[in-house]
Write a protein that binds this DNA or RNA. Sequence first.
DNA 1: GACAAAACCGAACGGTCGTATTATTTTCTC
DNA 2: GAGAAAATAATACGACCGTTCGGTTTTGTC
Lengths: 196, 196
Amino acid sequence: MSKGEQTQERIVERALQLATRDGLAGLTINRLAVELGLSKSGLFAHFGSKEELQLQVLRAAAQQFQESVVRPALTAPRGEPRVRALLEHWLAWANDSTWPGGCIFVASAVELDDRPGPLREYLVSTQEAFLATLAKVARQAMEVSHFRSDLDPEQFGFDLYAIVLGYHHAKRLLHDVRAEERARNAFDRLIQSART
Amino acid sequence: MSKGEQTQERIVERALQLATRDGLAGLTINRLAVELGLSKSGLFAHFGSKEELQLQVLRAAAQQFQESVVRPALTAPRGEPRVRALLEHWLAWANDSTWPGGCIFVASAVELDDRPGPLREYLVSTQEAFLATLAKVARQAMEVSHFRSDLDPEQFGFDLYAIVLGYHHAKRLLHDVRAEERARNAFDRLIQSART
DNA sequence: GACAAAACCGAACGGTCGTATTATTTTCTC
DNA sequence: GAGAAAATAATACGACCGTTCGGTTTTGTC
């Protein structure tokens, strides 16, 4: 890996952390450069535009989410255990101290939902793909008869996603110490209603 | 009402609309002034600081939420009908075309969750108060035996809030045309599990 | 209708933003 | 290790930011 690629990776990694706190729009090239001991123009040259930097931040986040949440969960046996593993890794991701400002996707979702453009398009594609994964995992649980055969797997994906959004809200905004407990209760109720 | 108060109200109203799209931080005094046909300094003089303007925006939003969602819902009979009315008005609020960028509270929650200060404090207080209202309405439903006596009303509030967050996400980011259907399904499942 | 108070405006300040240009240093290749 | 290529830096630009200040217009009161 060349020097430039190394630097670029360092920049994106730090930018990702900052973006969880300040949002993608809240990122500023100067602050980022100062934090990393680079010059503003030197950092800028790596991307050519702020939007390209933001896009790479989203890409890096998607990749890390895949590796931290989706892939480990897929090592659990199909069916309910895999669904449960998904929740566990997902909650851990939302709680990961690497992200001082919480989940970048939650932050970006609100930030980008009214701003057409490549950033929004990319974010939407990742979220749709993840929702498809959720539905797929639910469908597998139906196939192994952990879940009832008339379950709507897409609805299950919506329900699960909503729980994590609720968790994020209770934990990060309200600092509710029982947020995780609430999320787990909601999850148990969801699983209960999905069982055969 | 004096001229100044009238103007101030006009400003806050418009600012509230803009803030749903661009966030509280995305508000700019100049853009706001141009839209309203005022001078930047003339508008500024009404508030003395940008933060005070933002605070008044949140205050206005809380008041309107109370009048559009909470108060009408309280006219429904206690118990399940009132819970259902709450959802209806809440969904309508999240969908209200007055807010081009969706619910201001969802937007502010993500924006402020890492920024200590009076804005965050005020938002948290409104959300806690609303969650308390949700729990109270659930408790009433227990008292009239619509809901089981061992229900956890705070958990019910969490669950309901999560559903609306999921709805907001599906609708605004993903443009899922079935978002409302998903939210209603989730709500029905919640009610089902809460019944006696 | 005078006169104080309130409302509003124009201009300017110091800062920060993203970006472009030009130059310098570092890295890589033969 | 020379020389091309890549990486980084210095500087500057125009735009916009929140805020201040001094002056002008409008409003409300006796």
